[in-house]
Amino acid sequence: MSRVIVITSGKGGVGKTTSTANIGMAIASRGHQVAVVDADFGLRNLDLLLGLENRIVYTAVDVLAGECTLEKALVKDKRQPKLVLLPAAQNRTKDAVTPDQMKRLVSELAKTYEYILIDSPAGIEMGFRNAIAGAQEAIIVTTPEIAAVRDADRVIGLLEAHSIKRIQLVVNRIRPAMVEANDMMSVQDVQEILAIPLIGAIPDDERVIVSTNRGEPLVLGENNSLAAVAYHNIARRLDGEKVEFLDLNAPPSGFFARIRRFFGSKPRS
């Protein structure tokens, strides 16, 4: 049985595409067949983050129009042969696709791929509804900001109404020093409002931006930045492993781990 997971947020620019690219690569590196789907029609950029832009010939819209087979539209990644990308059309309007069509594409992919990750556009309009149409699970990405959390909460409500019951949380761009100084919500604060299980917390790290600009997801590189490890841990947790949450606050000198401080497990379902 393949797992179809939509990565969504409500608010824009919080790290959905970055998370899709890195989690997708990390799961593929664990030996699974992965398809990442760009559902951000009109504003695609998953291909850029993956460094696959120049290999795109056909897009999902061409498949739906019957102009090519699904197989043909899938872009393979030579750095990670277990991952493929289904690109979105850049110059068509979002209305070029319907939820039913998305469902068809996804169930076609599900015949071959174990994990299908769908990168959702921001907002709760048609593009969002397309992105969630074929999904059975969701990963909500938020930053520790009030507006982002508010939108995430709203999206969780919509997902629940659409019978997507397995919803997990990624809190992105945490700055431990700011949390410490009470200038930023902690992961726990975010969780207390959203009341869904946490699957990962990613530190704010400029290497994420650098890797984005290079088209090379962080998890592919040699560097063992905390952010890369955090993404790998998300992949492991998705796979059912129990992995302790990182202590993002650990000073570089390798101080004593205070793992439970920020991510202490709350007895909430």
Binding site: I146, R150, D153, G157, A195
Partner: peptide, 24 residues
């Protein structure tokens, strides 16, 4: 339930809610 952001409950009587009423 958890009343999440964007949800509004209106009722011409008393409302008893087991759960959180979130901001928004």
């Amino acid at each position: 339930t958890t009343l999440r952001s964007g949800v509004e409950v209106r009722h011409p009587g008393t409302v008893v809610l087991l759960g959180d009423v979130n901001p928004g």
